[in-house]
């Protein structure tokens, strides 16, 4: 990992399009300003990881499982096509 020490108000450049500025340092927290082109996604790591993990968990559902799950939610008044489980 590349390590750079920066003071308040100083920047780091990544390539020619991304600039990170130290805006505030207070009580163990660092506030960063990030200038990047629109197509560069900037996320807090923990949120990124949470969504990624949830995507993985959700990703393998089969149509038969989906039907079973949906069947448990069907309103009683609506008739479904096909066989009805007991």
């Amino acid at each position: 990992m590349l390590i750079r020490t920066r003071k308040l108000g100083e920047n780091i450049r990544i390539g020619d399009k991304i600039k990170i500025t130290v805006l505030d340092v207070k009580g163990g927290q660092v506030k960063l300003g990030i200038d990047a082109p629109p197509h560069i996604a900037v996320h807090r790591e923990e949120i990124y990881q949470k969504i990624l993990e949830e995507n993985r968990r959700a990703s393998g559902i089969s149509p038969s499982t989906l039907k079973e799950v949906a069947a448990t939610l069907q309103p009683r008044k609506r008739k479904r096509r096909g066989q009805e489980g007991s």
């Binding site: 559902i61 149509p63 989906l66 039907k67 799950v69 949906a70 069947a71 939610l73 069907q74 479904r80 096509r81 096909g82």
Partner: peptide, 12 residues
């Protein structure tokens, strides 16, 4: 999207 009656309220 695969929208089957049996999947609802979900869509595959």
């Amino acid at each position: 999207f695969i929208d089957e009656e049996a999947f609802r309220p979900f869509v595959w």
